[in-house]
Design a protein around this nucleic acid. Sequence first.
DNA 1: ATCCGCCTCCCCCGCGTGGGGGAGCGTGCC
DNA 2: GGCACGCTCCCCCACGCGGGGGAGGCGGAT
Lengths: 222, 222
Amino acid sequence: MGAREGTAIRVVLADDECLIRDALAAILGCEPDIRVVGEATTGAEAVAVVREKRPDVVLMDVRMPEINGIRATEQVLATMEEPPRVLVVTTFEHDSYVFEALRAGAAGFLLKRASPEELVGAVRLVARGDSLLFPAAVRDLAARHVRPPAGADPVIARLTEREREVLRLMARGLNNSEIADRLSVGAETVKTHVAGLLAKLRARDRTQAVIAAYERGFVRPR
Amino acid sequence: MGAREGTAIRVVLADDECLIRDALAAILGCEPDIRVVGEATTGAEAVAVVREKRPDVVLMDVRMPEINGIRATEQVLATMEEPPRVLVVTTFEHDSYVFEALRAGAAGFLLKRASPEELVGAVRLVARGDSLLFPAAVRDLAARHVRPPAGADPVIARLTEREREVLRLMARGLNNSEIADRLSVGAETVKTHVAGLLAKLRARDRTQAVIAAYERGFVRPR
DNA sequence: ATCCGCCTCCCCCGCGTGGGGGAGCGTGCC
DNA sequence: GGCACGCTCCCCCACGCGGGGGAGGCGGAT
């Protein structure tokens, strides 16, 4: 899969800004082992062009008319038998798209301010089957898996220590009496804490509270 | 941060196998801009050496005596003020350590069978502040964020379509009557589905069911 | 010393929830 | 045709849960 030995790496460029496309084409065109075989200015067009040209690599901009680059990536990867490696390109590294790009199955993530050398390096890398990310991307990903430094969430921070304790146990599926046993307090006490929790989390019932615990990263799956 | 201009990139190698260390040292030693300033054979030793030598980059093996590379990475990054960039090295790319390495804050993930060029390239890359991953790593990560292809989980798979629908809404905090409205069915019907859900998920109440939904990746935070 | 927040425990009350049944209806399988 | 299964709806009932109060002790802030 990817580029066959001895053949040029076939690349499709998808970006709504003509300037960017030209710049990318110019940089990649200088490389003997890379050939730009198609261009697209919208997400929909990108899907069509990629389907037709069957490139090894797609440089996909995130922000494009009609369909954005993420969706286009999804569609390409979902519908093609031997999909190309998609390299998602964007302007801002703090972009939350980083994450979605990976979800969509992108092979890598590249910043527009990358140097020409980095660009061609990245194209060769993904064509070989490797993947790459830029630092912000990794930080982004890592951040999603490391629990926020003990209550970065303002709402969670407003909970008392005891309430957090109760919430943790609630999120493990314990009912009030079990929590009471675990904390060695009366069942009535637990109810009070639960009531406090619900109010502060704006939750109607314990189920919504547990959902909030997950959504705010207070507890996490796995 | 990282390597200052004009200075060599200072690298510490941590691997319990002497052969590997020597090989890495030999490869990196040939590069004028890279200097191996320390080596370690255990996780604990790695932490100590890194703290003392303050390198720009650490090549950290995953499997090491006493403390594994992941833990060592965590400790280094958590305790040092200007921590080095950690490049986690392993033998198998399907290793689940990939994920944990990122959690721990590693800048990149490298396979031992990488070519010498890739190795030095990777070291320079992370020293500059970039990060890199190999394809399996990205796939691994992506897999954690894409919901398993419509019920990879056997328990979830045993649910009927309607039950999954109800579970989704339950996990969004809706109560039975709200779910009934949303699905345009009677409240009694919802109760039946909920009962089925609870039995199949071995959940005592809806809260435990929602927890199961999160834990099994049926729904996910954010 | 006073106030306030937190933890603890108690009361009553309404209702949502879950458990136990049963039943009709359509679909697909054997 | 018989059968299983999923979806729909209904009954009654027990209980956990959440809402509304109140109350005492304890520590820190002012």
